[in-house]
Design a protein around this nucleic acid. Structure first.
Lengths: 140, 140
DNA sequence: TTTATTTGTTACCACCTTAGATACAGATCA
DNA sequence: TGATCTGTATCTAAGGTGGTAACAAATAAA
């Protein structure tokens, strides 16, 4: 299935904001770098604003800025700000409870999936918007 | 977007096969435990068969069996057998190459995403169909 | 005060993926 | 010969995703 690009786009935008500290960037300008449309950017940034990661300013000269130092914004916190769901999906229909495996497989899988997602998130916690920007600049 | 349930269903079926060693289980019976339809099971199991994880037998008394010991089938190998794609998706449109961030963000993200997915897979490698079955039975 | 700019939000749409459902040819066994 | 089961194709409904347009509200500049 086509995965959501929201996390990637959010990191792209945050890195862009970090590259221009103190400047408010408009949704339309941001959309130009991401190669998408302004409404999509605004919808996405709304989640980050409600999580306190960015600040928005309407009107002439307005736009988006980081609300916290780039060093303090971990990739894990961005993922959470977006309300991204679990990586693994359970059955679409409840398994047959008359079957021992069907009755307990979800509990067993929840434990395993939890460990796997935690391991992934611990890696995301090691990176910040600031480190992303450094990585981008190192490729120039 | 709604995540694929294929990985979960595959693990469910493999655990079921491990619970009945030496017995061939028909797609219709398996579908009854998973609470889905036989064609979906057959489509899914086709991937596992091509990866050498299960064996199928047509005709009366036929069905599906594990092709390898349950202890040797890691959750990571199941994920690979299904050809599951990456956890993180890049932009749907290529970012603007005239922007420094747009030009290099995908390279930077590929590195980070690779680490995170590797950490997740190392966890999946720690579990097998046999350990899943033990976990299920421990909940009885 | 007026005008231009920008956010915040809604609505609608086309597209894609998923999984359910049905059908049937081919293989296998009794 | 008939019953069973796989392998595969096709069709469909449902849901998610992102592109597009529109407009009220807020803000700043003229």
């Amino acid at each position: 299935m086509a995965l959501s690009t929201r996390f990637t786009v959010a990191l792209h935008v945050l890195t862009l904001l970090a590259a221009y500290p103190g400047q408010a960037l408009a949704s339309a300008y941001i959309a130009g770098s991401v190669n998408t449309n302004a409404a999509f950017v605004r919808r996405l940034m709304g989640s980050l604003r409600r999580a306190g990661l960015v600040h928005s300013q309407p009107g002439t000269g307005g736009g988006w800025q980081l609300a916290r130092p780039a060093e303090e914004i971990t990739l894990r916190s961005v993922r959470h700000a977006l309300g991204e769901g679990p990586v693994f999906a359970m059955h679409s229909q409840r398994p047959n409870p008359k079957c021992t495996v069907g009755r307990h497989i979800q509990g067993a899988l929840t434990a395993v999936y939890g460990e796997a997602e935690k391991a992934m998130e611990m890696q995301l916690e090691q990176h910040t918007v600031a480190s992303l920007l450094r990585s981008v600049r190192g490729r120039r």
